[in-house]
Design a protein around this nucleic acid. Structure first.
Length: 543
RNA sequence: GUCUCCAUCGUCUAGUGGCCUAGGACACCGGGUUUUCAUCCCGGCAACAGGGGUUCGACUCCCCUUGGAGAUGCCA
């Protein structure tokens, strides 16, 4: 009677359990653009689903995980508006006992073993389960033959099967897999004679540590099993077990390895969806097994494509300009960066690009995330940033500007009214707040003169004559306002036979030192009569 | 080497077999508005990596090639 009512575990989960996602950075002092994009997608997904966005600080690298580094991380997240639920965040170092207990449990269940292969003491190694069928997603796909190089003996032990494959040149190429990868292994020679059969020897190998060395083999024959899962962005993914090896989960110094810590913490935090970078896809197969062996439900995975630099390579720690803090320090607006980053590897499906957080949240879906890596385009970001700045209410723009100007000594004494006047003239011209550096000519006594611009604009003798006429004309102005200033400048042109407007750029060069800026009449008004005349004098002497 | 992915203008992307003469955005190049610059408006340049299939029909599906990335750690 319930036919047609079947639901998968995943559907059940999305149906009845609220979504819980996490951002799990290791605090290294600087937050990488690729990392924060992962955080943004997690945040967007959680907010879209009405679920929880958790923060876990993977601070197990004691050398790099300083309090300052953690503070930087928190600060950057706050700046971008990535508010997380369930404070305080989970610090991974506080979970070590839990990680170790999990390793003990795996050991007790026979899903892990100790191995002294490296230096020091014994490490704990997770064994890809022999009875892999108990892991969701594992299936057999048929018998395969793997050629091996006859000069190198095939080694079979509890740690797996080691053999040499055959390279294109015919030389031995190192190969090997976990024991579970080739459950019913047979080792054959060139004449198809069976040299070794794994069946029946499992106990001896696993329990008693028996090891076998089979020389003269030509091929391995076994039933291939693959582990598959559905990735919310990449689709169906699978990997043969015989391409996997057992994985170290506790180092010989007793510290838990990433794979263990990560999975245990995800279980602890009740994570339902793991949304992370592409570079973790391979780990996923192993993590799924860990979840299962630890008796936990496997979460839903979604792997995001990477953000790459102009050379097409993933940003490395050396790409200094890819840190979130650097974007802030260059005058990018948090909302603009957030907006831009959300559009890297994702789009709403229509032509919208400038989107508010509400719009992004409403439109976000993992199924629209792209599969290919994306290259960051600073020019497009800058353009978007300019749009955000242009649309800022004037008082907000002034508040941010005021804050930004603190870094320039020449802006120390700027009054609110001055700032307001300059802001009104300049807001539409600002792409990044770093551009405010060019506002200095409004406030200093003598501007920095652009040699080329000034030399060019102040060369013509007629122009110079007209500029010489300006002081007297300005002096005659009853009030020093844009309209009157314009009239005076035109009068200077008339006196010297210059067409109206031809004096504007030379005057700009002389009083601002620059070739670009807001309207010159308004600029001169702002500068005031005295400063304008003083600069005019200096410029004419200098050029 | 092996494994896992990926591939549309320079860049970000739309495109789920006929709406594609492939759309939008940034950048770039023209033109207009403006006293310069910016804004704004109009226009232009520019892409389905290559080769095979499947199909009446392929950017879309399949295969191969090429190119790229990641993984293959007692890093995370």
């Amino acid at each position: 009677m319930f036919a047609g009512c079947q639901v998968t575990l995943r559907e059940l989960r999305t149906e009845f359990m609220s979504v819980r996602v996490r951002f799990a950075p290791s605090p290294t002092g600087q937050v990488h653009i690729g990392n924060i994009r992962a955080a943004i997608f997690n945040w967007l997904f959680a907010r879209h689903e009405g679920g929880s966005f958790l923060l876990r600080i993977e601070d197990t690298d004691l050398e790099r995980s300083t309090p300052e580094a953690i503070a930087t991380l928190l600060e950057v997240m706050e700046w971008l508006g990535l508010d997380f639920d369930e404070k305080p965040p989970l610090y991974q170092t506080s979970q070590v006992q839990k990680h170790l207990a999990a390793a003990e449990r795996l050991l007790a269940a026979g899903d892990a073993y100790r191995d002294a292969k490296g230096g020091g003491g014994e490490a704990v190694v997770f064994r890809i389960p022999f009875a892999a069928e108990r892991i969701p997603g594992v299936s057999s796909v048929g018998t395969v033959d793997v050629p091996v190089h006859p000069e190198v003996p095939v080694q079979v032990s509890g740690k797996g099967v080691d053999y040499a494959g055959i390279s294109k040149k015919g030389t031995p190429a190192p190969g090997g897999c976990c024991l579970a990868g080739c459950l019913d292994l047979q080792v054959l020679d060139a004449a198809e004679q069976v040299l070794f059969t794994l069946a029946g020897k499992e106990d001896a190998i696993l329990r008693d540590g028996a090891e076998f060395s089979v020389p003269g083999a030509a091929k391995l024959r076994f039933t291939r099993r693959v582990i598959s899962y559905h990735d919310e962005v990449k689709g169906d993914m699978s990997k043969p077990l015989d391409s996997m090896r057992d994985v170290v989960i506790v180092r010989s110094d007793g510290s838990p390895v990433f794979h263990l810590a990560n999975v245990v913490d995800d279980i602890t935090q009740g994570i339902t969806h793991i949304i992370r970078g592409d570079d973790h896809v391979e780990n996923t197969f192993r993590h799924i097994m860990l979840f299962s062996c630890l008796g936990a439900a496997v979460p839903t995975y979604a792997h995001l494509p990477m953000i790459v630099n102009a050379a097409g390579k993933p940003y490395s720690k050396r790409d200094g300009d890819a840190f979130v803090g650097d974007f802030r320090d260059n005058g990018f607006v948090a909302d603009a960066l957030f907006n831009y980053l959300s559009l890297l590897g994702w789009s709403p499906g229509d032509d919208r690009e400038k989107m508010s957080r509400q719009e992004l949240t409403a439109a976000f879906s993992l199924s629209r995330v792209l599969h290919a890596s994306a290259q960051m385009d600073i020019q497009k970001l800058t353009n978007l940033n300019g749009q955000y700045i242009a649309e800022m209410p004037a008082d907000e723009f002034l508040a941010v500007s005021r804050e930004w100007l603190k870094r320039y000594p020449w802006a120390a004494a700027v009054s609110d009214s001055q700032l307001q006047a300059v802001g009104a003239l300049m807001q539409s011209r600002v792409k990044r707040f770093a551009d405010l550096e060019q506002w200095s000519y409004f406030f200093v006594d003598v501007p920095e003169y652009d040699e080329k611009v000034c030399a060019k604009q102040l060369k013509d003798p007629v122009v110079r004559a007209a500029l010489q006429a300006i002081p007297a004309l300005f002096a005659a102005l009853p009030d020093f306002a844009a309209a009157g200033i314009e009239g005076a400048i035109q009068a200077a042109c008339d006196q010297t036979g210059l067409a109206h407007g031809k004096l504007n750029q030379p005057l700009r060069a002389a009083v601002t030192g620059s070739g670009v800026g807001a309207g010159i009449y308004e600029t001169v008004e702002l500068l005031g009569r005295e400063r304008t005349l003083a600069r005019l004098k200096i410029a004419l002497e200098r050029y």
